[in-house]
Design a protein around this nucleic acid. Structure first.
Lengths: 206, 206
DNA sequence: TCCCTTATTGGCCCAAGGTCCAATACCCAC
DNA sequence: GTGGGTATTGGACCTTGGGCCAATAAGGGA
Protein backbone atom coordinates (compact mmCIF):
# COMPACT_ATOMS: atom_id res chain seq x y z
CA UNK A 1 0.00 0.00 0.00
CA UNK A 2 1.68 3.16 -1.29
CA UNK A 3 1.08 6.43 0.52
CA UNK A 4 0.15 9.11 -2.00
CA UNK A 5 2.60 11.99 -2.13
CA UNK A 6 1.57 14.97 -0.02
CA UNK A 7 -0.42 17.87 -1.44
CA UNK A 8 -0.49 21.51 -0.41
CA UNK A 9 -4.07 22.76 -0.40
CA UNK A 10 -4.46 26.50 -0.81
CA UNK A 11 -7.60 28.41 0.01
CA UNK A 12 -7.76 32.11 -0.85
CA UNK A 13 -10.51 34.22 -2.34
CA UNK A 14 -8.05 36.35 -4.28
CA UNK A 15 -7.35 34.47 -7.48
CA UNK A 16 -4.16 36.43 -8.16
CA UNK A 17 -2.77 35.40 -4.78
CA UNK A 18 -3.96 31.86 -5.36
CA UNK A 19 -2.12 31.61 -8.65
CA UNK A 20 1.01 33.17 -7.31
CA UNK A 21 1.11 30.86 -4.30
CA UNK A 22 0.44 27.83 -6.48
CA UNK A 23 3.27 28.81 -8.79
CA UNK A 24 5.68 29.26 -5.89
CA UNK A 25 4.82 25.92 -4.33
CA UNK A 26 4.86 24.05 -7.63
CA UNK A 27 8.27 25.49 -8.36
CA UNK A 28 9.39 23.79 -5.16
CA UNK A 29 8.15 20.52 -6.67
CA UNK A 30 5.12 20.26 -4.43
CA UNK A 31 1.70 18.99 -5.45
CA UNK A 32 -0.78 21.82 -5.20
CA UNK A 33 -4.57 22.08 -5.18
CA UNK A 34 -6.07 25.56 -5.14
CA UNK A 35 -9.52 26.52 -3.89
CA UNK A 36 -11.18 29.93 -4.34
CA UNK A 37 -13.54 29.57 -1.40
CA UNK A 38 -13.53 27.84 1.98
CA UNK A 39 -16.88 26.19 1.23
CA UNK A 40 -15.48 24.60 -1.86
CA UNK A 41 -12.54 23.20 0.06
CA UNK A 42 -14.71 21.98 2.91
CA UNK A 43 -16.95 20.07 0.54
CA UNK A 44 -14.33 18.57 -1.68
CA UNK A 45 -11.48 17.86 0.70
CA UNK A 46 -10.73 14.26 1.52
CA UNK A 47 -9.37 14.06 5.08
CA UNK A 48 -7.38 10.98 4.10
CA UNK A 49 -5.26 12.97 1.66
CA UNK A 50 -1.86 13.74 3.16
CA UNK A 51 -0.46 17.25 3.08
CA UNK A 52 -1.19 20.61 4.61
CA UNK A 53 -3.44 23.61 4.20
CA UNK A 54 -2.39 27.17 3.43
CA UNK A 55 -5.32 29.29 4.42
CA UNK A 56 -6.25 32.92 3.96
CA UNK A 57 -7.69 34.47 7.09
CA UNK A 58 -10.15 37.01 5.71
CA UNK A 59 -12.59 35.53 3.22
CA UNK A 60 -16.27 36.05 2.40
CA UNK A 61 -18.59 33.42 3.88
CA UNK A 62 -16.48 31.32 6.18
CA UNK A 63 -13.37 33.06 7.41
CA UNK A 64 -10.20 31.14 8.07
CA UNK A 65 -10.80 30.57 11.75
CA UNK A 66 -14.28 29.28 11.03
CA UNK A 67 -12.96 26.88 8.43
CA UNK A 68 -10.38 25.73 10.94
CA UNK A 69 -13.15 25.06 13.45
CA UNK A 70 -15.26 23.29 10.82
CA UNK A 71 -12.34 21.03 9.93
CA UNK A 72 -11.76 20.22 13.58
CA UNK A 73 -15.41 19.27 13.99
CA UNK A 74 -15.23 17.20 10.84
CA UNK A 75 -12.33 15.31 12.36
CA UNK A 76 -9.73 16.48 9.91
CA UNK A 77 -6.33 16.98 11.48
CA UNK A 78 -4.62 18.57 8.50
CA UNK A 79 -1.94 21.03 9.61
CA UNK A 80 -2.93 24.62 8.83
CA UNK A 81 -0.71 27.54 7.92
CA UNK A 82 -2.54 30.83 8.04
CA UNK A 83 -1.76 33.61 5.65
CA UNK A 84 -3.20 37.05 6.09
CA UNK A 85 -2.97 40.56 4.77
CA UNK A 86 -4.83 42.36 7.51
CA UNK A 87 -4.59 40.08 10.50
CA UNK A 88 -4.36 41.19 14.08
CA UNK A 89 -2.76 39.73 17.16
CA UNK A 90 -5.91 38.32 18.78
CA UNK A 91 -6.73 36.44 15.58
CA UNK A 92 -3.25 35.00 15.31
CA UNK A 93 -3.31 33.95 18.96
CA UNK A 94 -6.71 32.36 18.51
CA UNK A 95 -5.49 30.45 15.49
CA UNK A 96 -2.38 29.21 17.26
CA UNK A 97 -4.34 28.21 20.35
CA UNK A 98 -6.61 26.13 18.18
CA UNK A 99 -3.67 24.28 16.76
CA UNK A 100 -2.58 26.19 13.68
CA UNK A 101 0.97 25.36 12.77
CA UNK A 102 1.95 28.85 11.69
CA UNK A 103 0.50 32.26 11.01
CA UNK A 104 2.23 34.31 8.33
CA UNK A 105 1.53 37.79 7.04
CA UNK A 106 1.25 38.98 3.46
CA UNK A 107 3.28 39.78 1.58
CA UNK A 108 4.85 36.52 2.63
CA UNK A 109 8.52 35.78 2.30
CA UNK A 110 8.85 32.84 -0.10
CA UNK A 111 11.34 31.02 2.06
CA UNK A 112 9.25 31.46 5.18
CA UNK A 113 6.26 29.93 3.47
CA UNK A 114 8.20 27.06 1.97
CA UNK A 115 9.81 26.26 5.28
CA UNK A 116 6.46 26.32 7.04
CA UNK A 117 5.02 24.04 4.39
CA UNK A 118 7.88 21.59 4.76
CA UNK A 119 7.42 21.48 8.51
CA UNK A 120 3.66 21.04 8.10
CA UNK A 121 4.02 18.19 5.64
CA UNK A 122 6.47 16.41 7.87
CA UNK A 123 4.25 16.90 10.88
CA UNK A 124 1.31 15.53 8.93
CA UNK A 125 3.33 12.52 7.88
CA UNK A 126 4.30 11.68 11.43
CA UNK A 127 0.77 12.27 12.70
CA UNK A 128 -0.62 10.00 9.99
CA UNK A 129 1.66 7.19 10.97
CA UNK A 130 0.60 7.52 14.59
CA UNK A 131 -3.04 7.71 13.59
CA UNK A 132 -2.81 4.63 11.39
CA UNK A 133 -1.31 2.72 14.28
CA UNK A 134 -4.09 3.86 16.57
CA UNK A 135 -6.76 2.86 14.08
CA UNK A 136 -5.16 -0.53 13.79
CA UNK A 137 -5.30 -1.00 17.54
CA UNK A 138 -8.84 0.32 17.66
CA UNK A 139 -9.95 -2.16 15.03
CA UNK A 140 -8.64 -4.99 17.16
CA UNK A 141 -10.39 -3.59 20.22
CA UNK A 142 -13.62 -3.41 18.25
CA UNK A 143 -13.36 -7.11 17.49
CA UNK A 144 -13.61 -7.93 21.19
CA UNK A 145 -16.92 -8.96 22.73
CA UNK A 146 -18.19 -6.87 25.66
CA UNK A 147 -17.12 -9.53 28.09
CA UNK A 148 -13.66 -9.72 26.58
CA UNK A 149 -13.31 -5.96 26.92
CA UNK A 150 -14.15 -6.21 30.60
CA UNK A 151 -11.53 -8.88 31.06
CA UNK A 152 -9.04 -6.74 29.13
CA UNK A 153 -9.43 -3.81 31.50
CA UNK A 154 -8.83 -6.09 34.44
CA UNK A 155 -5.76 -7.60 32.85
CA UNK A 156 -4.17 -4.25 32.03
CA UNK A 157 -4.75 -3.09 35.56
CA UNK A 158 -2.76 -6.04 36.81
CA UNK A 159 -5.51 -8.13 38.36
CA UNK A 160 -5.09 -11.84 38.83
CA UNK A 161 -7.50 -14.10 36.99
CA UNK A 162 -9.14 -15.11 40.23
CA UNK A 163 -9.71 -11.48 41.23
CA UNK A 164 -11.19 -10.72 37.83
CA UNK A 165 -13.42 -13.76 38.18
CA UNK A 166 -14.68 -12.57 41.54
CA UNK A 167 -15.31 -9.05 40.18
CA UNK A 168 -17.23 -10.36 37.20
CA UNK A 169 -19.10 -12.97 39.19
CA UNK A 170 -17.70 -16.01 37.47
CA UNK A 171 -14.88 -18.51 37.93
CA UNK A 172 -11.20 -18.39 37.07
CA UNK A 173 -11.46 -20.92 34.30
CA UNK A 174 -13.86 -18.73 32.36
CA UNK A 175 -11.56 -15.76 32.70
CA UNK A 176 -8.69 -17.78 31.34
CA UNK A 177 -10.66 -18.52 28.21
CA UNK A 178 -11.66 -14.90 27.68
CA UNK A 179 -8.13 -13.79 28.38
CA UNK A 180 -6.70 -16.16 25.81
CA UNK A 181 -9.16 -14.86 23.23
CA UNK A 182 -8.23 -11.26 24.09
CA UNK A 183 -4.55 -12.02 23.55
CA UNK A 184 -5.34 -13.70 20.26
CA UNK A 185 -7.63 -10.98 18.92
CA UNK A 186 -5.25 -8.20 19.99
CA UNK A 187 -2.42 -10.09 18.33
CA UNK A 188 -0.06 -9.96 21.28
CA UNK A 189 1.93 -12.63 23.04
CA UNK A 190 2.54 -11.06 26.42
CA UNK A 191 0.76 -8.98 29.02
CA UNK A 192 3.41 -6.31 28.53
CA UNK A 193 2.52 -5.87 24.86
CA UNK A 194 -1.17 -5.84 25.75
CA UNK A 195 -0.63 -3.06 28.26
CA UNK A 196 1.34 -1.11 25.64
CA UNK A 197 -1.55 -1.28 23.19
CA UNK A 198 -4.19 -0.52 25.80
CA UNK A 199 -2.18 2.47 26.98
CA UNK A 200 -2.00 3.90 23.47
CA UNK A 201 -5.68 3.35 22.92
CA UNK A 202 -6.41 5.20 26.13
CA UNK A 203 -7.80 2.24 28.04
CA UNK A 204 -7.65 2.85 31.75
CA UNK A 205 -7.56 0.49 34.67
CA UNK A 206 -10.66 -1.31 35.90
CA UNK B 1 2.97 18.31 52.70
CA UNK B 2 0.91 21.34 51.82
CA UNK B 3 1.21 22.85 48.36
CA UNK B 4 1.76 26.60 48.68
CA UNK B 5 -1.02 28.64 47.10
CA UNK B 6 -0.25 29.80 43.56
CA UNK B 7 1.35 33.16 42.84
CA UNK B 8 1.07 35.39 39.81
CA UNK B 9 4.49 36.74 38.91
CA UNK B 10 4.45 39.98 36.93
CA UNK B 11 7.39 41.32 34.99
CA UNK B 12 7.12 44.75 33.42
CA UNK B 13 9.58 47.62 33.21
CA UNK B 14 6.83 50.21 33.52
CA UNK B 15 6.23 50.63 37.24
CA UNK B 16 2.83 52.22 36.69
CA UNK B 17 1.68 49.20 34.70
CA UNK B 18 3.22 46.91 37.29
CA UNK B 19 1.30 48.54 40.11
CA UNK B 20 -1.94 48.61 38.19
CA UNK B 21 -1.67 44.94 37.25
CA UNK B 22 -0.76 43.97 40.78
CA UNK B 23 -3.76 45.84 42.12
CA UNK B 24 -6.09 44.17 39.66
CA UNK B 25 -4.83 40.68 40.42
CA UNK B 26 -4.78 41.23 44.17
CA UNK B 27 -8.36 42.43 44.00
CA UNK B 28 -9.16 39.03 42.56
CA UNK B 29 -7.63 37.54 45.71
CA UNK B 30 -4.51 36.27 43.97
CA UNK B 31 -1.02 36.28 45.43
CA UNK B 32 1.16 38.59 43.39
CA UNK B 33 4.89 39.20 43.08
CA UNK B 34 6.00 42.07 40.87
CA UNK B 35 9.39 42.45 39.16
CA UNK B 36 10.63 45.55 37.39
CA UNK B 37 13.11 43.72 35.16
CA UNK B 38 13.42 40.30 33.56
CA UNK B 39 16.90 39.81 35.04
CA UNK B 40 15.56 40.32 38.50
CA UNK B 41 12.87 37.73 37.95
CA UNK B 42 15.27 35.26 36.37
CA UNK B 43 17.60 35.45 39.33
CA UNK B 44 15.08 35.35 42.11
CA UNK B 45 12.42 33.03 40.75
CA UNK B 46 12.09 29.60 42.31
CA UNK B 47 10.88 27.11 39.67
CA UNK B 48 9.20 25.10 42.40
CA UNK B 49 6.81 27.93 43.21
CA UNK B 50 3.39 27.25 41.67
CA UNK B 51 1.63 29.91 39.65
CA UNK B 52 2.04 31.70 36.37
CA UNK B 53 3.93 34.52 34.78
CA UNK B 54 2.48 37.69 33.25
CA UNK B 55 5.19 39.06 31.06
CA UNK B 56 5.70 42.29 29.17
CA UNK B 57 7.08 41.74 25.69
CA UNK B 58 9.21 44.84 25.15
CA UNK B 59 11.70 45.46 27.93
CA UNK B 60 15.26 46.76 28.11
CA UNK B 61 17.91 44.08 28.47
CA UNK B 62 16.13 40.77 28.00
CA UNK B 63 12.90 41.03 26.09
CA UNK B 64 9.97 38.79 26.88
CA UNK B 65 10.77 36.16 24.28
CA UNK B 66 14.33 35.94 25.52
CA UNK B 67 13.19 35.53 29.08
CA UNK B 68 10.84 32.81 27.90
CA UNK B 69 13.76 31.04 26.23
CA UNK B 70 15.95 31.49 29.31
CA UNK B 71 13.26 29.95 31.51
CA UNK B 72 12.91 27.03 29.14
CA UNK B 73 16.66 26.42 29.26
CA UNK B 74 16.57 26.70 33.02
CA UNK B 75 13.96 23.98 33.08
CA UNK B 76 11.16 26.11 34.38
CA UNK B 77 7.79 25.19 32.97
CA UNK B 78 5.82 28.05 34.41
CA UNK B 79 2.91 29.05 32.13
CA UNK B 80 3.48 32.43 30.51
CA UNK B 81 0.92 35.05 29.54
CA UNK B 82 2.41 37.75 27.37
CA UNK B 83 1.23 41.32 27.59
CA UNK B 84 2.31 43.88 25.07
CA UNK B 85 1.66 47.42 24.00
CA UNK B 86 3.40 47.37 20.65
CA UNK B 87 3.53 43.73 19.70
CA UNK B 88 3.29 42.37 16.21
CA UNK B 89 1.96 39.17 14.72
CA UNK B 90 5.32 37.42 14.19
CA UNK B 91 6.23 37.99 17.83
CA UNK B 92 2.90 36.64 19.04
CA UNK B 93 3.22 33.60 16.80
CA UNK B 94 6.76 32.99 18.01
CA UNK B 95 5.64 33.21 21.60
CA UNK B 96 2.74 30.82 21.09
CA UNK B 97 4.91 28.36 19.18
CA UNK B 98 7.30 28.29 22.09
CA UNK B 99 4.54 27.39 24.43
CA UNK B 100 3.13 30.67 25.74
CA UNK B 101 -0.34 30.20 27.10
CA UNK B 102 -1.73 33.48 25.85
CA UNK B 103 -0.68 36.73 24.26
CA UNK B 104 -2.71 39.80 25.19
CA UNK B 105 -2.45 43.39 24.06
CA UNK B 106 -2.43 46.54 26.15
CA UNK B 107 -4.60 48.09 27.22
CA UNK B 108 -5.76 44.73 28.45
CA UNK B 109 -9.33 43.97 29.31
CA UNK B 110 -9.42 43.09 33.00
CA UNK B 111 -11.64 40.08 32.51
CA UNK B 112 -9.49 38.74 29.69
CA UNK B 113 -6.41 38.90 31.86
CA UNK B 114 -8.09 37.37 34.88
CA UNK B 115 -9.48 34.54 32.81
CA UNK B 116 -6.11 33.88 31.25
CA UNK B 117 -4.51 33.84 34.69
CA UNK B 118 -7.09 31.40 36.00
CA UNK B 119 -6.47 29.07 33.08
CA UNK B 120 -2.72 29.37 33.52
CA UNK B 121 -2.83 28.60 37.22
CA UNK B 122 -5.02 25.58 36.65
CA UNK B 123 -2.75 24.36 33.87
CA UNK B 124 0.25 24.79 36.13
CA UNK B 125 -1.47 22.86 38.89
CA UNK B 126 -2.22 19.93 36.60
CA UNK B 127 1.27 19.99 35.12
CA UNK B 128 2.80 20.01 38.59
CA UNK B 129 0.85 16.96 39.62
CA UNK B 130 2.00 15.13 36.50
CA UNK B 131 5.57 16.26 37.05
CA UNK B 132 5.59 15.17 40.67
CA UNK B 133 4.37 11.75 39.62
CA UNK B 134 7.10 11.51 37.02
CA UNK B 135 9.77 12.51 39.50
CA UNK B 136 8.49 9.90 41.87
CA UNK B 137 8.79 7.23 39.20
CA UNK B 138 12.22 8.51 38.19
CA UNK B 139 13.43 8.30 41.76
CA UNK B 140 12.45 4.64 41.88
CA UNK B 141 14.16 4.01 38.57
CA UNK B 142 17.30 5.66 39.90
CA UNK B 143 17.33 3.23 42.81
CA UNK B 144 17.77 0.31 40.42
CA UNK B 145 21.20 -1.16 39.78
CA UNK B 146 22.40 -1.24 36.14
CA UNK B 147 21.64 -4.94 35.95
CA UNK B 148 18.16 -4.45 37.31
CA UNK B 149 17.51 -1.76 34.72
CA UNK B 150 18.49 -4.18 31.98
CA UNK B 151 16.11 -6.76 33.35
CA UNK B 152 13.40 -4.12 33.59
CA UNK B 153 13.62 -3.29 29.90
CA UNK B 154 13.30 -6.94 29.04
CA UNK B 155 10.31 -7.39 31.30
CA UNK B 156 8.42 -4.40 29.90
CA UNK B 157 9.03 -5.64 26.40
CA UNK B 158 7.34 -8.90 27.31
CA UNK B 159 10.31 -11.24 27.30
CA UNK B 160 10.24 -14.49 29.23
CA UNK B 161 12.75 -14.88 32.04
CA UNK B 162 14.58 -17.55 30.09
CA UNK B 163 14.89 -15.29 27.05
CA UNK B 164 16.16 -12.45 29.19
CA UNK B 165 18.66 -14.82 30.77
CA UNK B 166 19.93 -15.87 27.35
CA UNK B 167 20.23 -12.24 26.22
CA UNK B 168 22.13 -11.24 29.32
CA UNK B 169 24.31 -14.34 29.34
CA UNK B 170 23.08 -15.76 32.62
CA UNK B 171 20.48 -18.24 33.89
CA UNK B 172 16.78 -17.94 34.56
CA UNK B 173 17.17 -18.16 38.30
CA UNK B 174 19.31 -15.05 38.40
CA UNK B 175 16.77 -13.13 36.34
CA UNK B 176 14.04 -14.12 38.75
CA UNK B 177 15.98 -12.57 41.61
CA UNK B 178 16.66 -9.35 39.72
CA UNK B 179 13.05 -9.22 38.60
CA UNK B 180 11.76 -9.59 42.13
CA UNK B 181 14.01 -6.74 43.24
CA UNK B 182 12.79 -4.57 40.37
CA UNK B 183 9.18 -5.14 41.38
CA UNK B 184 10.02 -4.33 44.97
CA UNK B 185 12.01 -1.18 44.24
CA UNK B 186 9.45 0.10 41.75
CA UNK B 187 6.73 -0.58 44.30
CA UNK B 188 4.45 -2.51 41.98
CA UNK B 189 2.78 -5.87 42.31
CA UNK B 190 2.15 -6.80 38.70
CA UNK B 191 3.82 -6.63 35.32
CA UNK B 192 0.95 -4.49 34.11
CA UNK B 193 1.68 -1.79 36.68
CA UNK B 194 5.36 -1.99 35.89
CA UNK B 195 4.67 -1.43 32.20
CA UNK B 196 2.47 1.53 33.09
CA UNK B 197 5.28 3.17 35.04
CA UNK B 198 7.93 2.39 32.45
CA UNK B 199 5.71 3.82 29.73
CA UNK B 200 5.29 7.09 31.60
CA UNK B 201 8.99 7.32 32.28
CA UNK B 202 9.67 6.83 28.59
CA UNK B 203 11.39 3.46 28.90
CA UNK B 204 11.31 1.62 25.63
CA UNK B 205 11.51 -2.05 24.81
CA UNK B 206 14.78 -3.95 24.89
C1' DT C 1 -36.46 -24.63 13.39
C1' DC C 2 -31.48 -24.77 12.88
C1' DC C 3 -26.98 -22.43 12.99
C1' DC C 4 -23.76 -19.11 14.89
C1' DT C 5 -21.96 -16.20 18.34
C1' DT C 6 -21.17 -15.46 23.03
C1' DA C 7 -20.55 -16.86 27.65
C1' DT C 8 -19.82 -20.33 30.56
C1' DT C 9 -17.49 -24.48 32.99
C1' DG C 10 -14.83 -28.88 33.69
C1' DG C 11 -10.46 -31.70 33.69
C1' DC C 12 -5.64 -32.45 32.73
C1' DC C 13 -1.04 -31.07 32.20
C1' DC C 14 2.80 -28.17 31.53
C1' DA C 15 5.25 -23.82 31.57
C1' DA C 16 6.33 -19.67 33.84
C1' DG C 17 6.49 -16.73 37.74
C1' DG C 18 7.16 -15.86 42.71
C1' DT C 19 9.05 -16.95 47.43
C1' DC C 20 11.50 -19.12 50.86
C1' DC C 21 16.10 -20.92 52.18
C1' DA C 22 21.31 -20.49 51.54
C1' DA C 23 25.81 -19.66 49.28
C1' DT C 24 29.83 -17.82 46.33
C1' DA C 25 32.40 -14.09 44.05
C1' DC C 26 33.86 -9.38 42.81
C1' DC C 27 34.78 -4.63 43.68
C1' DC C 28 35.10 -0.54 46.28
C1' DA C 29 35.63 2.18 50.32
C1' DC C 30 36.72 2.86 55.25
C1' DG D 1 41.40 -6.53 55.32
C1' DT D 2 36.88 -6.08 56.53
C1' DG D 3 32.20 -4.77 55.50
C1' DG D 4 28.66 -3.51 52.24
C1' DG D 5 26.58 -3.42 47.79
C1' DT D 6 26.08 -5.99 43.51
C1' DA D 7 25.75 -10.08 40.72
C1' DT D 8 25.36 -14.64 40.62
C1' DT D 9 23.49 -19.52 41.39
C1' DG D 10 21.13 -23.65 43.54
C1' DG D 11 17.06 -26.15 45.51
C1' DA D 12 12.40 -26.78 47.04
C1' DC D 13 7.74 -25.50 46.76
C1' DC D 14 3.59 -23.09 45.63
C1' DT D 15 0.75 -20.10 42.65
C1' DT D 16 -0.57 -18.47 38.17
C1' DG D 17 -1.07 -18.61 33.48
C1' DG D 18 -1.81 -21.01 29.23
C1' DG D 19 -2.99 -24.90 25.93
C1' DC D 20 -6.10 -28.69 24.54
C1' DC D 21 -10.35 -31.24 24.38
C1' DA D 22 -15.03 -31.28 25.50
C1' DA D 23 -19.50 -29.61 26.82
C1' DT D 24 -23.77 -26.75 28.13
C1' DA D 25 -26.83 -22.75 27.54
C1' DA D 26 -28.92 -18.36 26.08
C1' DG D 27 -30.03 -15.22 22.32
C1' DG D 28 -30.29 -13.63 17.57
C1' DG D 29 -30.87 -14.25 12.78
C1' DA D 30 -31.49 -17.07 8.31
Amino acid sequence: MMTPSPTVFIVDDDSAVLKSLARLLRSARLNVMAFGSPQEFLERHDPRAPGCLVLDLAMPGLNGLELQAALTVKGSAIPIIFLTGHGNIPASVQAMKRGALDFLTKPVNDDDLLKAVQVAIEKDRIARIARAELEDIQARLDSLTPREREVLTHVVSGQLNKQTAADLGTVEKTIKVHRARVMEKMKVHSVAELVHLAERAGIRAA
